[in-house]
Design a protein around this nucleic acid. Structure first.
Lengths: 191, 191
DNA sequence: TGTACATCAGTGAACGCGCGTTCACTGATGTAC
DNA sequence: TGTACATCAGTGAACGCGCGTTCACTGATGTAC
């Protein structure tokens, strides 16, 4: 069967979206090409009509994941006065909702140790994504000068990433909520 | 060749130690039975004379990793006055030394997303390790009542775990030091 | 004390399995005449 | 307008590989007589 170029792009986008969710839910090594293609309603053989390699897909999935969380956080911040935006980011990022749905959450929370271990081949592009993430969040961070905002970014996101991860290890919702609420309070009091 | 029972225990300990380092350096899925046995100077076939399964080894390796970091932190705290102990823990945990040697560091910093995704079969024992870790660190945490100390544990360790992970993704030492120092300052000012 | 036997940690070939990747093939649709 | 051909996304068998696990075997040492 032959399809239009728009159709091909659409399929490609669907594969990337599915893979992005799977990667965040199951880890960098947890995504099989066959499984992703099945998600998209195709068979594994067609994969290489869309991607050069699995690494290629992984990088695109990461990009998609970062874009998604950036959009989610940017959207949450839309109506807050400047200087208060970071509070909205903390509340959204540390919501039970995002904690219990890693597949819709931040790739750093879902994958940072995997990213630190990534092969040299793809590491630079991962670092670029992190830098880009930082750039996108910087305007919302507390602090006067850029250097202050940058420090705030690293501290706030470190804290949020760690809290989400610990909460995700905990087996029951009440404990998760305790960790998330405690961290939220702490951060909101801290700047 | 036949060996004494002490020798067998010694070998077993060596396998666990090697595996514990490998797991923290390369992730839960990054450790092959063959590689660990080679580290210990043996061949893969003998593995099942020491362990029931790979899961068995993984759990023991995690236990070993938690014990190691607990000992490291407890040792760092030995000479500090009570009430100041947590500061020493923050300084040690966020040292460049531990950041650049995941294989000697905290299993949570190295593996928490993997632990969150662990199969139901081993999850309860992982949670037990986390609870034990918390119990071991609680006496050193700031706060008057146990509830305060517990809140402090989750906040402080969340922040440290996230900071170490972000630092480990960053490609050059200067940036890593900036993140670690910034987080250290932040935490030391916060309690 | 010396000898025959039992034990069992360790070896390495073999297994079944899932994976990433390749490839000859299909067949619906676009294009050339 | 109708027909022959080219295109190329998608299929599914096949590949080589690494993995966890099994198993018949080895041979140094402990034990029984």
């Amino acid at each position: 069967m032959r399809y239009s170029p728009e159709h091909k792009l659409e399929i490609r986008r669907k594969i990337v979206k599915d893979a992005s969710r799977r990667v965040r839910a199951e880890g960098l090594t947890g995504v099989a090409v066959g499984a992703v293609m099945k998600d998209a309603g195709l068979t594994h053989g067609g994969f290489y009509k869309h991607f050069e390699s699995k690494d290629d897909l992984l990088l695109e999935s990461l990009r998609e994941g970062f874009r998604e969380i950036e959009d989610t956080l940017a959207h949450a911040v839309e109506k807050s006065p400047p200087g208060e935006a970071w509070k909205e980011i903390v509340k959204t990022y540390l919501s039970l909702e995002l904690c219990e749905h890693p597949e819709r959450g931040c790739p750093l929370a879902a994958l940072s140790p995997d990213l630190a271990r990534a092969e040299t081949r793809i590491k630079p592009q991962i670092v670029a994504e992190l830098v880009n993430y930082k750039g996108r969040m910087l305007p919302f961070m507390p602090g006067r000068r850029t250097a202050d905002k940058e420090r705030a970014f690293f501290v706030i996101f470190s804290t949020m990433i760690g809290a989400i991860q610990i909460a995700r290890v905990l087996p029951d919702r009440a404990m998760r909520e305790k960790v998330l609420a405690g961290t939220k309070d702490f951060l909101l009091r801290s700047f």
